[in-house]
């Protein structure tokens, strides 16, 4: 597991049933592109988050494939429909096989 990787998400605490909400996500990750040379003159091996997914109560919201051109500390903002109360699950996939996830509950009201 890469060091210091920590997911952060911003989801409203509640919404009206059927509302569209904005979700912001960011994960601390260096996103080493594999194209940069280190101090020793050799290429630093690629190490990135290559996929991000969000789902609500098991139904997909967004699935993003990421390439090395995504900036350090990858940020994704998108919209989701909230049909009922439940839980968003966010998952990030690292080149090294690590999987990072976090969840956020949302109430109807």
């Amino acid at each position: 597991m890469a060091e210091g990787v920590k997911p952060r998400v911003k989801v409203p605490k509640k919404a009206a049933a059927g509302d569209t909400i904005t979700i912001k996500t960011l994960i601390s990750h260096k996103m080493e592109s594999g194209q940069r040379k280190g101090k020793d003159g050799n290429l630093v091996p690629r190490s990135i988050i290559n996929r991000f997914t969000a789902e609500f109560n098991g139904t997909p919201v967004i699935d993003v494939t990421m390439e090395p051109a995504i900036s350090t500390n990858p940020y994704v903002e998108f919209e989701a429909v909230v049909p009922e109360e439940g839980e968003f699950k966010f998952t990030w996939y690292d080149d090294d096989g690590s999987v990072y996830d976090t969840a956020k509950k949302i109430a109807i009201g």
Binding site: K6, K24, L26
Partner: peptide
Amino acid sequence: DFDNPGMLGVEA
């Protein structure tokens, strides 16, 4: 603060 990547350092 959510958009500010400097806050990652603050959290750490």
